[in-house]
Nucleic acid binder design. Sequence first.
DNA 1: GCCTATTTGACATACGTATGTCAAGTCAAC
DNA 2: GTTGACTTGACATACGTATGTCAAATAGGC
Lengths: 341, 341
Amino acid sequence: MKPTVHDIAREAGVSLSTVDRVLNGRADVRPKNAERVKTAVRKLGYVRDTNAANLAKKRRYNFVFVLPEGPISFVDTVAAAIREAADAQVTDRADVEVRYVNAADPHAIVKCLKSLDLGQLDGVAIMVPETPQVRDAVAHIKSAGAYVVSLVSDLPNSRCDHFIGIDNFSAGQTAGALLGKFLRKETGSILVTTNSMVARDSIERRYGLDEILSRDFPGLTALPTIEFHDDSKRIHETLERAISEHPELRAIYSMGSGNTAMLDALRDHAGEKNLVVVAHDLTSVTRQALVDGDVDAIIVQNVGHLARSALRVLRAKCDDTEIYEAQEQIRIEIVMRENLY
Amino acid sequence: MKPTVHDIAREAGVSLSTVDRVLNGRADVRPKNAERVKTAVRKLGYVRDTNAANLAKKRRYNFVFVLPEGPISFVDTVAAAIREAADAQVTDRADVEVRYVNAADPHAIVKCLKSLDLGQLDGVAIMVPETPQVRDAVAHIKSAGAYVVSLVSDLPNSRCDHFIGIDNFSAGQTAGALLGKFLRKETGSILVTTNSMVARDSIERRYGLDEILSRDFPGLTALPTIEFHDDSKRIHETLERAISEHPELRAIYSMGSGNTAMLDALRDHAGEKNLVVVAHDLTSVTRQALVDGDVDAIIVQNVGHLARSALRVLRAKCDDTEIYEAQEQIRIEIVMRENLY
DNA sequence: GCCTATTTGACATACGTATGTCAAGTCAAC
DNA sequence: GTTGACTTGACATACGTATGTCAAATAGGC
């Protein structure tokens, strides 16, 4: 039988009230008695029944997700996953709200974070680039007693409670290894594209790619990263030029958002080149491209897992409960047409 | 505010007792009143608070896992994952026991299944091949009110409540696609090995492989499957012969257990051939082989996910709660050195 | 040893559900 | 209209925890 507070009281030779005061820090307790309670807790291996406690407290968890706004289809899939997870039983007692900010504007991000009702808030998951202002806002939220996790892109200098996402350096390595193996005996160059290198993600992926290519696939050269800042004309021109200027072009690695334009351009300009294509993130566009055979493989972080993990981690933090790391580890998945889900 | 049984009673104009009788089928209730309760439930969208109910009932869940015994390292990883999941908070209120049977002996399996204390049992997850006897035993367990899920290998003709595992046909397709893409412009043959084709898994994977090769990679031919029945000498000889007899050999696909022997043999006999190797299941052996570069990619079903999923599904069945399909979907993962976890 | 401030314990109530007892109510058949 | 069988409602208790009230116990300062 699991010990209860009653057992603790008996073991410690104090009353239930005192046990409660120690466990919940509700009033001054003489050090001697506090120590006896703590000893009894350790001795009996007491762990609070969070469900019963939540029942008694009528506990609700208030969580907010802050996502970048704009026409980024990956973010849409994340948002959908959050809503689905919030609806499912995974999140009893949790109210979750999704807010959007202009991620390119640190000021706007901070404004959004400052506008949170810290009295109500239990935790927030944020998916924005790190800036000093964001770092301060995170600290502010934490000082108010709420928990903060970063989602998808890490905020290494902010004191977040957890990071929910993949290691982008490894993701870049994985892409590089895939490209290298797909091009096994071939040599040539790889076109690397992204919407913007401002996002830390792309930078890290690029590092990972370069590292693995130079170490394991010296016959392959990655061309300088092309950024096309939501400009589909630019990607068309760039791709066209790259194909004509680089007859040795063998592959394309699309590192981040903006797959749509890249894939459109690819269809127009590279029909006969038979390029190997690796992209990131499973969206309706990349999904279709996989099915059509326009993309060979996609590097994926499962958005359902991201959403559920963020919620579980925030809850665990609120409950001061251990995080089940094995479950919260977001894996770098490789998806091809055959294991598409 | 979520409606409670009190709200239902008020809405239906009956007493709490009657609501309880209807909700838990505890006694005869006049049809008219039963209908009023059910209507109120629907109208208010009442859902039972399982945590509160479990608290009141002092509910415990009794689950048993039945795994194949013998020196199968994949099974060891599954068992470890089950124990880890059972220890973690994921499984409050659950007692889980792991039993081993000789999976090659249908009689032994049935004996094990019959020996379960059906009075205590709430659910069982079984990882054994399907036979008519097993099918009957499953039916027997179910008729006693316990739930049954199949783990890793499906029992399509038994009336299990759920299957926790991957689609092995798709897994074979995935392996085929990987091999095809790794060998992009090459032609030649692929050696296919397994410990035993008795297991349905291997058969399905082989079908998937053949399907994808003939459709998408006609230049590649899969040789007849070699079974080596726990005989490491046989795999050595076979591999040696295959390499000498098939100069066009390009790759090896190890479909199931027995990777150890296969990899040993590979190191001895195929040093200079530079074969592409795809195997199944992440064990200490395949993990090391990945790191050493002896294997190019591994098709994985995450054992932690398998274990947690089995437990969640069994609970959901016991609670008559909806299964969160998106979460329970076991993915066919592709693991290379770079995204190894 | 007394006074006061602090600490403690006993008790009650609650959360949402389960389950039992027993008296009161309702119904159908005679 | 009465009987007996069935159905219902009121109430009590419980699960493990939280939280409040108030009187009693205790410690420390004198």
